[in-house]
């Protein structure tokens, strides 16, 4: 019994880790990158109070945050084909996770933008800078510092959430584990194993977060 467990554990380790490296991590990284771009744009639109666009931004955040990501995955992957839009599983997952994470992250970024003292924006105007220049060079860099810990948190959350992509046939880590369970009938062992690998990935991200935070702590480091 014990030996069988060890054999299965070792045999399946690479079979789970490999899809993790080939699918889970790229899915997480790509989605998070696009989410950040969406988040900054959506946050800036609201921060600048762009008429019309601001309502659109609020609507987007409202819809995304108000519906389960699983439903969003199903709508995009299984629903859109009836409108003639056929997507491969992986791109469909990237689109859904980007839009989903983008909505949450935009709220984080917006709060961080609001936290930058308004006086610095006025000072920027007084030395002749334009709104965009002030945002790009003064406000956003400071806001991204503030937003770094909560965004790291979101990244860790997203990594685990990508397991939902199994539902739209993306053969990422969780689905790989499921397949091995179907073959070996060892659910406890394999689900613990895949959990362990998620834990391993998240530990690395947590470590990176604390290194990043230490670096960003003060301007000019310790002088």
């Amino acid at each position: 019994m014990k030996e069988r467990w060890i054999t299965i554990f070792l045999d399946s380790f690479w079979k789970i880790l490999l899809p993790g490296l080939k699918l889970t991590l790229p899915l997480t990284a790509l989605s998070f990158l696009f989410a950040l771009i969406i988040a900054v744009m959506v946050a800036l639109i609201q921060f600048a109070d762009v008429k019309g666009l601001k309502q659109l931004a609020r609507f987007y955040v409202w819809v995304i945050r108000g519906t389960p990501v699983l439903v969003q995955l199903f709508v995009v992957f299984y629903g859109l084909p009836s409108l003639g839009i056929l997507l491969e599983p992986f791109p469909a997952a990237v689109i859904v996770f980007s839009l989903n994470e983008g909505a949450y992250a935009s709220e984080t970024v917006r709060a961080a933008l609001e936290a930058v003292p308004k006086g610095q924006i006025e000072a920027g105007y007084c030395v002749g800078m334009s709104w965009l220049q002030i945002m790009r060079r003064i406000v956003l860099p400071q806001a991204m510092r503030t937003a770094f810990p909560p965004l790291s948190n979101s990244l860790i959350g997203l990594l685990k959430e990508t397991s939902l992509a199994a539902n739209i046939t993306v053969a990422e880590m969780f689905m790989s584990a499921q397949r091995i369970v179907a073959r070996t009938y060892e659910p406890l062992l394999l689900y613990l194993e895949v959990g362990l690998i998620y834990l391993f990935f998240c530990t690395i991200l947590t470590k990176l977060q604390s290194i990043g935070e230490r670096r960003l702590k003060t301007y000019g480091g310790t002088k």
Partner: peptide
């Protein structure tokens, strides 16, 4: 023109 504020408003970054 230039403006000097009560609370400095230096760019923190």
């Amino acid at each position: 023109t230039a403006f000097v504020f009560q609370n400095f408003n230096l760019f923190a970054n």
